[in-house]
């Protein structure tokens, strides 16, 4: 039950974000989870470290879009 829900929502989110990014999915795939920043198939550059996100937001003046999800 939970796995299904996770999948459905994850797919929805990825599709949604890809749509918002207005770009085609990157052929690059998923880089390693340990890197500070990853570019996912939805073409969004995800920071993987919360403190780093705060620092980048301060530096750039941008707001933070924070996603909590179960699996990388």
């Amino acid at each position: 039950m939970r796995v299904t829900a996770t999948l459905v929502v994850s797919i929805l989110a990825v599709l949604s974000l890809a749509g918002l990014a207005g770009q085609k999915p990157s052929p690059g795939g998923l880089p390693g989870a340990d890197s500070a920043e990853t570019q996912t198939r939805d073409s969004i550059k995800w920071v993987r470290n919360y403190s780093q996100a705060l620092a980048r937001a301060r530096q750039s003046g941008k707001p933070i879009f924070l996603e909590f999800r179960c699996k990388p």
Partner: peptide, 29 residues
């Protein structure tokens, strides 16, 4: 936006980011 993806709650202030944890995904701005 600065987009940040968190997959483990270790090191996260869970009182600040208080949400029903039975959501598989949850976002904050």
């Amino acid at each position: 936006f600065v987009c940040v993806r968190i997959t483990t709650m270790a090191g996260i202030d869970i009182n600040l980011f208080d949400f029903d944890r039975h959501n598989a995904l949850y976002f904050f701005v």
